[in-house]
Design a protein around this nucleic acid. Structure first.
Lengths: 217, 217, 217, 217
DNA sequence: TATGAATGAGAATTCATTCAT
DNA sequence: TATGAATGAATTCTCATTCAT
C-alpha cells in the first residue's frame, strides 16, 4: 500500500516509544473510529506535544493508515501457516477460526478498527482498506476449497463460490461475536470460550453434512 | 427500551412533520454516522429552526436512538407475516431472506444506520442497540427452528442455538452484500440480483443437506 | 462583485454593531494584511465569540472581501462628482488629488488595505481586487484627458495613454506619501498638509508646461 | 542600518553557501511575503538543518532584513555608474530607468520583496525599510537634478524637490508595471517591452517640455 | 411553542524557536 | 559548530447546545 510511510522521525524513535504511540492511536481509533478519533486525545495520552505527532506523521490520515497497515501485517502472519498444513478442509477451517480467535485476543484493537471502518463512509480510503483486509476472504478460502474438492473431500456438485461466501460469513460472524464478548463482555451469545468451542464444533458438523463427499465422513 | 422517548412536543407534532424529521435525520445519520452527522444540516433540510429540534429531542443521542428505534419497529413488522406461514422451515428461511432484501430496498437508510452503528462509539450506547437486534436470531429464528424440529424437518441432533447463529450470520452477510452492492456498488461479491438468487439457492441446498432429516436428500 | 455577501445574520445586526465589526476587521487587515490578520484577534477586539464571526461571514475570505467591497463603495463615491465639473483638466486633476486626500483622511484603513493587498501574492483574488480599485486609473483618467484634448486644453501631439499612466503614477504616489505620513507620521517627504499643497501646485505647474496647448496657459 | 548583521557564524561560511542561503530565502520571501515565508521551507531547499539557520541569524526578522539589505546593496551598485556619465539630465533619467529595468530582470526577487514589504507589517519594521529606499529619490535624484539646474538644463523656477518626487513616482510606477508584467503577467498596462519603450520616450518628452529651459522645445 | 443568534470548547494543522546531543 | 526532534502557542473553522425573544 502506498502513502503509509510515517516520517523518518518516527522510525528513528526508540521502538518502545513507537509502540506506545501506535497502540495509543490504535486504541483511540478503535474506540472512536476515524472521524471521531481526536489527535489531541492521543498526544495527551502518549504524553507528547501536539506538534510532535506531526513530526512523526504527515497528518491524521497517515497516522491512521500506518496503524491499520501495522494491523494488516500482524493479521496476515496469523493465517499463513494454516494453508500449508496437511489436514482435511474441515480441520483447516477449524484451525483458521481459532487462529482468528487467537489474533483478536492478542490484538483486539486491530480488529475493532477494521470493524469500525467497515461501514464508516467518510474514511476516504475505505474501499481500499476493506479490500485489503477481509479476514477470511474469497482470496483465502476459495483456493482452500478448490484443493479440497480436487482431493475429493467435497461433493462435486457444491457451488464453491457459494461455499466460500458462506464460510466467510460464518467465520467473520464468529470472530465478531468472540471479539465483542471478549472486548466488552456484552456476551451476545454468552460467547465464552466454552460456548464458542461448542458452536464451532456444531458448525463444523453441519458443514460436513452439507459439503462433504458421502456425508458423515 | 429506556431513554429513547422524544419529548412530548415531538409527539404532538402532525404525523407528517414527525415523519419528515425522522427520515431526514435517518438520511443524515446513514450518510455520515453518528459523530459525523450534523444537526445543522438536518434542521436545514427539514426547514425548522435549530432550537425546535431541541424542543423535540433532548439531544443528538436521543434523536439518533429514536430514529434507530423507528427502524427497528419497521423491521419487526416486515418479518411478522412469515412466522405464520404454513411452509417448511427452509422455505421460511428463503422467504425471510427475500423479506430482508425487500426491506433494505424499501428502507435503505435504516439498514445503513444499523451497519454504521454496529461497531461505533462507546460501549453502553452500542450495547443498547445491538441488544435490540438480537431479537432477530433469538426471538425470531430460534422459535422457527424449534417448531421445525418438532415437526421433524430438522435432525434431532442439530444444535439449534448454533443453527440460529449460523442462519443469522448468513442472512446478515447476504443483506450486507446486497445492501452494499445496492447502495454504493462496492460489490464485495458482485452481489447483483442474479448472483444473490444463485447464492440463496445454493445456500438453502447446503442447509438442507446439513440440517434436514434424512441427510443427503 | 460576486460572493461578497455576508450571511443574513450579519445584516440583521444593529448597524452600530455591524460597523464595529467591519472597522475592527478593516483595522486588522490594514495592519497585518490578509494572511497575517487573525480572526482570533478580531473577535477579541470586537468582544464577540469566535463562533459568532462564522455566523456572520462564511469564512476569512468572505469577511475580507466584504470589508474591501465596503471600502470600494466609499471610494467610488468620492471621485464621482469631479468628472462632471465644468473646469479645466488641470483643475480636475487638482480636485481629484484632494478628493483622494480627503478620502484617505476619512477612511485611512481602506486605503491601507488596498496598499497591503497590492503586492500580497497569496490573496487568491488579488488580480480581481487590483483591477477593481485603482484609485486614479486609466478608466478614470483617460476619458478625462480625451475630453480635455477635444476641448483644446492639451497639445494634439501628446500621447494620452502615456499621460494617463504618468498622472496615475503621480497621483497614487502622492496619495501614498500623504497616507503614510498621515497614518504613522513617518513623514517620508515631510508630507504635512503645507508641503503637500506645495507639491501639488508645483506639479500641476510642470504638468501644464508639459501638456498644455501653448505652454503657460 | 542597525540590527541587520547576521551572526558571525554566517559570515564565516563559504561565500558560495552564504549566497545559496540568501537567494533561497529571497525567493521564499518574494513568493510568500514576510509572514507567509516558512523557515522550514527555506532550510529544506538549502539543505541545511533548521538549527543551523538559527546559528546564522538571530531570528526570522533578522534573516529577512539581511536579505533585504543585500538587495539594497545590489541596487545601489546598479545606479552608481550613471551619476558620473557626461550626458544631459534627461538622458541620465532615461538611463536610470533602463538600469532599473535591467536590475529587476536580473534580480526579480529583490524587487518583489521590496514590493511585498512596502506596506506590510508593523510600522517600525517598515519604517526602517522605506527609510532605506528614500536614498533613491533624495540621495540619488536630487543631486542629479541640482547639477542639471546649475548647468542650465532645467528652468530656474522648477521646484527640485517636487521634481525629484515626481521622477521617483514615475520610475517606480514604470518599474512596477515592468516587473508585474514580467513576473506574473498581470500586465496592468500591458507593459510589454515595446510599450515600455514608447512610454519612456513619451514621458521623457513631456518631462523636457515641463522642466527644460526654453520651454516648448 | 418556535426561533435562530450566540456561545465556546474542541477539531486539525502550522511554524518559529529552543536545546540536548 | 551543526543538527533536527520537541515544543506549544497560534491558526482557521465546526458544531452541539443554550437562551432571550
Amino acid at each position: 500500500m502506498k502513502g503509509i510511510e510515517p516520517k523518518k522521525t518516527f522510525l528513528a524513535l526508540p521502538l518502545e516509544k513507537q509502540k506506545r504511540i501506535i497502540e495509543t492511536a490504535a486504541s483511540e481509533f478503535a474506540e472512536r473510529g476515524f472521524k471521531g478519533a481526536s489527535l489531541n486525545s492521543i498526544v495527551e495520552k502518549v504524553g507528547i506535544a501536539k506538534g510532535s505527532l506531526y513530526q512523526y506523521f504527515h497528518d491524521k490520515q497517515h497516522l491512521f493508515l500506518y496503524v491499520f497497515d501495522y494491523g494488516i501485517r500482524l493479521a496476515k502472519g496469523a493465517l499463513k501457516e494454516i494453508e500449508s498444513k496437511e489436514i482435511s478442509i474441515f480441520e483447516q477451517i477449524r484451525y483458521s477460526i481459532f487462529a482468528g480467535f487467537r489474533f483478536v485476543k492478542k490484538h483486539p484493537l486491530i480488529y475493532q478498527i477494521y470493524l469500525k471502518i467497515l461501514f464508516e463512509d467518510k474514511v476516504p480510503f475505505r474501499k481500499k482498506l476493506i479490500g485489503t483486509l477481509r479476514f477470511y476472504s474469497h482470496k483465502y478460502l476459495l483456493p482452500l476449497l478448490k484443493r479440497a474438492k480436487e482431493r475429493g473431500e467435497i461433493r462435486p456438485d457444491v457451488d464453491l463460490e457459494m461455499a466460500a461466501f458462506m464460510l466467510d460469513a460464518m467465520m467473520e460472524k464468529m470472530l465478531q461475536a468472540y471479539t465483542l464478548s471478549y472486548i466488552d463482555s456484552i456476551g451476545l451469545y454468552k460467547a465464552d470460550d466454552k460456548t464458542i468451542n461448542r458452536l464451532v464444533d456444531a458448525w463444523i458438523d453441519i458443514l460436513k453434512k452439507g459439503l462433504a463427499n458421502g456425508g458423515i465422513d
